[in-house]
Design a binder for these strands. Sequence first.
DNA 1: AAACATTCCTGCACGC
DNA 2: TGCGTGCAGGAATGTT
Length: 291
Amino acid sequence: MPELPEVETVRRMLAEAVPGRRVARANVSGKRLRTSSLVRLPTQLRARTFAMPRRIGKFLLLDLDGGFTLLSHLGMSGRWLFWPPGRKPDAALEHVHLKIAFADGAALWFQDVRRFGMLRVLPTAKLARDASLRLLGPDPLAEPRDGDALRAAARGSRTSIKVWLLDQRRIAGLGNIYASEVLFRAGVDPRRRAGALDAEAWRRVAREVPAVLEESIARMGTTFSSYRTLWNEPGQYGEQLLVYDRGGEPCRSCGTPVRRIVQAGRSTYFCPTCQRARPRRSSPRPRLSNR
DNA sequence: AAACATTCCTGCACGC
DNA sequence: TGCGTGCAGGAATGTT
């Protein structure tokens, strides 16, 4: 479930753990992740020292000395796990694809059961041009946008607002859980067309995007199934979810059963009462042929 | 055992 | 009719 709050939680913990630490050696599993083979990583990481980690959307940028960056994405089930010097890593862990041993005895491992994650070392100067990052939209915490800006970005879009929020080219970092939560809190029907939302609806969406993300970060993210922090602990925001994974259960605001629908192949949860659709014109594109 | 948090790629449909 | 864009669906994989 790593979406922005989960990745940011891991980043903040990495910021306390890795800067200044030097890699003694790195080992990789034989398996490849979704994007690439890992065979070059041990050589690329050897003797490098980690700097302050950064994040853009759901991507982690682990800067190294010498002008390189370890670019990482957690995919569905990726985890970064850390042990300080003197603490033995759990040798029984399975699906560990990268094991970094630091010179001072600390350890940093990347575990990914489903292997949808990404690990790549590339020159820091080339990051902005890399295909993975080039198309990302603004990060909603680093560069929050107001309702008018979001509305302008969505002008003409005929896709639903839920699917629009999931598009990483528009906003970098929202995933399936928080898209549903944002729309519930904004009182917007997830089926409405993004290009048709009025300014007031966009204003509420723009307010709730950073609000939901910050509240989740404060609780170290949502553990829906596999996400863990750097210390292998679950996040606590799941208890605060208002609609996600609550199909059939009463809306916490009005009691109406929460509905589950599928949009673009993914589950959407919403309250049909609190997020009522404005009546839409039956013909979205009025014909002008006869007046 | 159907569903699944992620991104990427394909192919279709639409608008100009 | 042709071209570019936007969008839906499927794939990748292992677990519950």
